[in-house]
Amino acid sequence: MTPIQRMACLMMALLVSGAAAAQERMPPIPPDKMTDAQQKVVTDVVSGPRGRLSPPFVPILRSPELLSRLQRVGEYLIYHNSLDPRIFELVVMMMARNWTQQFEWRHHYPLALKAGVKQETIDAIAEGRRPVNLAEDEAIAYDFAVELLANKSVSDQTYGRFAGKFGEQRLTDLVATMGFYTSIAMVTNVDRTPIEDGTAPLLKPLP
């Protein structure tokens, strides 16, 4: 190993340890330090369909009432929304890419595959490309979400295709899904919420 190579390796090691040191800013509050309001919300959430206080809610527990209200929106969207799970997971992956949110990306990666989103579609989203082999309904949802993210509005043609295919309830559920995952992406990026164990690849910077 030449001195220059050794130097490069040393710098790599420093970089890696630096990344590991990017610790979460609002870690879990120990149960004995929780206020009554915090304890009550945690009990409610853990006894609900989630069965745990999932990592994005750990920082939000600083405001137990906000957590209670926001997680209820999420509970509807995750467990009862009117969209096909394949469409829901497709849009969640788009939101995770949009915010480069590693926790959400890794968490939803296997869920998206399981719901029937194609591997090549996920790979394209990861790289910021438009997926080429989307099913017809996926393409309609993809175009709607891309326009709303980029333009903050949706053209008549794209709106008409979505409303015609899915109806108005699914349309409002889709808009709310994007809003909810915006909240989650913001809080987890601010918090630097640690990723969970898993085999899904993480997002790279866009090329």
Binding site: L66, L148, V154, V175, F180, T182, S183, M186, V190
Partner: peptide, 19 residues
Amino acid sequence: VEIVGLLGYYTTIADMMNV
């Protein structure tokens, strides 16, 4: 956390109103 909640909420409303 409240600022982020506010941004998420008003983003949802703004998206909804823009759509």
